[in-house]
Design a protein around this nucleic acid. Structure first.
Length: 508
RNA sequence: GGCCCCAUCGUCUAGUCGGGCCUAGGACACCGGGUUUUCAUCCCGGCAACUGGGGUUCAAAUCCCCAUGGGGUCACCA
């Protein structure tokens, strides 16, 4: 078994790969990873990424799903060279529009005697399957050498017939780029249907026709297609087409093991987008599921991946996805993003929230509200993993907290004797800052508190803990003085005034 | 059930092709500790794996076989 290099030079032709989702739902994270791998492979070797929509399941395919898939790809930053909305020389790129092409192929196979009409009704087929457990005997039962004249007369009489491929004897070998040689005895492959009674092509034939028609050189797809591959190979040979290279990627498994489904939470790229995960985090996460570079690096940008991706690094065992890891990457990239961009991205998440009042106009126009808003985001930037976390964390900047949370109550109980100290602190603030302070003045506040505590001969903990609790209603927040700076003096003093009341409540 | 794929820490994985450098490396999670006004970040440390059994060999996580386990697939769906 020779595992050639995945280097396109060794292949001797321009690489053309495809991502071929069927638009029956949103872009699944497994599909997204397949798309990513195809994208990386194409970009790395200067090849072409084709996006083909396999919408031949008329019952389940929807335009909405197609749109969702395109949106998902764009969110991730995976652009395609040929396909919907961009066109190309190998179109059409919707499989349903290639029906004529597929029918021609069926005719060719029929004419060459490599396929035949099957008049068995579905009831008969159900029975045959029960009687014939294995492919070989099923084929023997279903395959009948009808007289051509009889076939045409029955067809002319309006009898319904599918077209089946006549599977030849022998063995089919898949030379898979990640799995090596996979051998399947043809006797394990039944004479499968390639055209429905209405003449339209069934999946395997359509794929072969399209992959060939689109000049695809490498087919990279999920392992669930491995069993289709032998059938497709048979078709390629029967049609005299040159066979593409194959690479079957292992599936992404649900946390408990097993196939990923809606039960396991978010499985569509759209859902992750809505949760506010950054696309670069998704890309990094997806790439590391089933692919690795070495024994050190974990962080990869899309650009890094284009450079470093290799089929050699693709593992052949299934990968259970771990949301904790995604969160970690989410936080990492959150801290990498320029503040300006985060501000823009945060807005939609915050505008949705009722407890956050943002003067959108002012933020967008860059007025004082903008400065304040940026300061808030800057503080949260290093603490969140996804944008969705924002609204519930920043409520206290916009409304006085009504209740202390658990951590705040604990702080209030522990420092209940600090009430007089805090009262004097409030007075000191008033005296020191007659005109208040700006949202970026935390250093001044910190200096002031130091000298205040020195005079009082008290520790910062005794003051900061209860102050944080009554100012924010929380036991944990960003640095107290940063928060106070943004809150402004008026708000701080007003909330500080409630300390005794809050302590009483917390203690009782 | 038939056929096919797979098998290293809880999870993602390096190492497996070209046996010795592996007393099995990294990351996430978890548990300690440090920094800090709390949280987060960051830093240090710890826990934790070659599925089992046979071979081959001076030597096996690495090669072979079997078992077991997991996954996929068996439509006039894609």
């Amino acid at each position: 078994m020779t595992q050639e290099s995945t280097n396109p030079e060794a292949v001797g032709e321009a690489v053309r790969v495809r991502f071929a989702p069927s638009p029956t739902g949103y872009l699944h994270i497994g599909g997204a990873r397949t798309a990513l791998f195809n994208y990386l492979f194409a970009r790395q070797c200067g090849g072409t990424l084709v996006l083909r929509i396999e919408d031949t399941d008329r019952e389940r395919s929807t335009p909405e799903a197609t749109q969702a898939i395109l949106d998902g790809m764009r969110f991730l930053g995976l652009d395609w060279d040929e396909g919907p909305e961009v066109g190309g020389d190998y179109g059409p790129y919707f499989q349903s529009e290639r029906d004529g092409l597929h029918r021609e192929l069926v005719e060719r196979l029929l004419a060459a005697g490599k396929a035949y009409h099957c008049f068995k009704t579905s009831e008969e087929l159900v029975r045959l399957r029960e009687e014939h457990r294995d492919a070989a005997s099923f084929t023997a039962a279903v395959r009948e050498d009808l007289d051509p004249a009889e076939v045409s007369s029955r067809l002319a009489a309006g009898e319904r017939a599918t077209v089946r491929f006549r599977v030849p004897e022998g063995e089919t070998v898949i030379d898979d780029l990640v799995r090596g040689e996979v051998r399947v005895s043809n006797s394990d492959i039944e004479d499968f249907v390639i055209a429905r009674a209405d003449g339209s092509a069934v999946y395997n034939l359509a794929v072969v026709g399209d992959d060939n028609g689109m000049g695809i050189t490498h087919v990279m797809r999920g392992e669930d297609h491995l069993s289709n591959t032998s059938k497709q190979l048979l078709l390629f040979e029967a049609l005299g087409f040159s066979v593409p290279r194959y690479a079957h990627i292992s599936l992404i498994l649900a946390p408990g093991g097993g196939k990923l489904s809606k039960r396991h939470g978010a499985v569509s790229v759209t859902e992750y987008e809505e949760k506010g995960y950054l696309p670069e985090a998704m890309i990094n996460f997806l790439a590391r599921m089933g692919w690795s570079y070495d024994d050190k690096e974990e962080i990869f940008s899309l650009e890094d991946l284009v450079e470093k991706f290799s089929l050699d690094g693709v593992s052949n065992s299934g990968a259970v996805y771990d949301l904790k890891k995604l969160d970690h990457l989410g936080g990492h990239y959150m801290r990498q993003r320029p503040l300006e961009e985060l501000v823009e991205m945060s807005l939609p998440f915050l505008l949705r929230s009722e407890q956050v009042q943002i003067d959108l106009e002012e933020v967008v126009s860059g007025g004082g509200g903008r400065e304040r808003f940026e300061a808030i985001i800057a503080l949260e930037q290093e603490r969140i993993n996804r944008l969705e976390e924002l609204p519930e964390r920043v409520g206290y900047y916009f409304e006085d907290p009504e209740q202390p949370d658990k951590g705040a109550r604990k702080a209030l109980r522990k420092k209940k004797d600090s009430v007089p100290l805090v009262e004097r602190y409030g007075e000191s603030l008033t005296a020191q800052f007659p005109d208040g302070w700006g949202s970026g003045d935390h250093e001044i506040l910190e200096e002031h508190v130091k000298s205040f505590l020195e005079k009082e001969d008290a520790g910062l903990g005794d003051l900061a803990q209860p102050v944080r609790a009554v100012l924010t209603g929380r036991g944990a927040t960003p640095g107290l003085f940063e928060v106070m700076a943004i809150l402004g003096m008026e708000t701080c003093l007003r909330r500080l005034g409630k300390l005794q009341e809050w302590v009483d409540k917390a203690v009782s």
